[in-house]
């Protein structure tokens, strides 16, 4: 079953969030990356690890997801399903972006102290672990009764006005 199938939204609980962060931490230390970010295919940050100081994480995630989406469209134009890995090399820092399970995107930002080969190896190994956590998240989303404690139940016009006080 595709990881995207049958679930309209992604809900991440504490346990899985901790597991995902541990996976990111391993990629970070083993590949000597500057930062590792996990986002959903729509550009929402799921988890991150490492040094993101000075990085506009929200914008980065939006652009990374758009990058993957645009590249997938190009792939289909040349008869491929998608291109699951993107690599952008800079003078100081480089970015390795990969699509995992058709549902999330793993972005690794690394400098000269890391090698592309090591990043690729660690990302490939982590991919299966991340997919396993995602499958757990999706099965919990179908079963977990904590979702009944919904932050949005009985939302009022006053609540909405409170959000837009500026």
């Amino acid at each position: 079953m595709s990881l995207r199938e049958g679930v309209p939204q992604l809900v991440v609980f504490e346990e899985e969030h901790r597991d995902l962060r541990q996976i990111l931490a391993r990629i970070h230390s083993h590949s000597r990356a500057r930062a590792v970010l996990l986002l959903d295919v729509n550009g929402q940050l799921v988890a991150k690890w490492g040094d993101t100081s000075g990085l506009d994480v929200t914008s980065f995630c939006s652009l990374a997801a758009s990058n993957i989406a645009a590249t997938a469209s190009m792939a289909r134009l040349v008869g491929e399903k998608d291109f699951t890995i993107l690599f952008h090399q800079g003078k100081r820092d480089s970015i390795h972006i990969s699509l995992i399970g058709d549902r999330v995107i793993l972005a690794v930002i690394f400098g000269a102290e890391a090698s592309l080969g090591m990043v690729r190896l660690r990302v490939r190994r982590a991919g299966a672990e991340i997919e396993a956590v995602l499958r757990r998240i999706l099965s919990r989303m179908r079963l977990d009764d904590r979702l009944d404690v919904d932050p949005l139940c009985d939302i009022t016009d006053q609540d909405i006005d409170e959000l837009f006080r500026f």
Binding site: V7, P8, Q9, V11, R142, L147, D148, L152, D159, I160
Partner: peptide, 23 residues
């Protein structure tokens, strides 16, 4: 501009409350 944004926010948040899995 903000009236429009509030309008869509109201719809989205109400819609989300109705379709959250498990509800």
């Amino acid at each position: 501009v903000f009236e429009t944004l509030k309008g869509v926010a109201r719809l989205v948040l109400s819609n989300l409350a109705q379709r959250t899995p498990g509800r």
